[in-house]
C-alpha cells in the first residue's frame, strides 16, 4: 500500500473525533505525523481542546461568581 499524506481538512476530522472515541493506531499515527508538519493544524488541535474544556470552566466561573474561596474549585488561583 502506498502511503499518502493526510490533508488538513481530513486531519480536523480526526482531531474532532479523538475527543469522542479513541482513534485507531493508524489514525493516531497519521494525525501525529500531520501535526508534526503543519503548524496551522497544531493550532486548530489546541483550539478544539480548549473548546473541549469549556464545560469544566463554566463550573469554575460559577464558583467564582459565588465568591467561593479559592482552592475549593480544585484549582490554583
Amino acid at each position: 500500500m502506498m502511503f499518502k499524506m493526510m490533508m488538513c481538512k481530513e486531519a480536523t476530522h480526526l482531531m474532532s473525533r479523538q475527543l469522542e472515541v479513541p482513534l485507531t493506531f493508524q489514525e493516531k499515527l497519521s494525525l501525529k505525523l500531520h501535526l508534526a508538519m503543519c503548524s496551522a493544524c497544531t493550532q486548530c488541535n489546541q483550539q478544539f481542546h480548549l473548546l473541549h474544556q469549556t464545560g469544566k470552566y463554566y463550573e469554575r466561573l460559577i464558583e467564582l461568581d459565588a465568591g467561593t474561596p479559592p482552592g475549593s474549585g480544585g484549582d490554583n488561583y
Partner: peptide, 10 residues
C-alpha cells in the same frame, strides 16, 4: 455535526 460546530466556533 460536532466537527463542523467546532470548526465554525473556532
Amino acid at each position: 455535526i460536532l466537527h463542523r460546530a467546532r470548526l465554525r466556533l473556532r
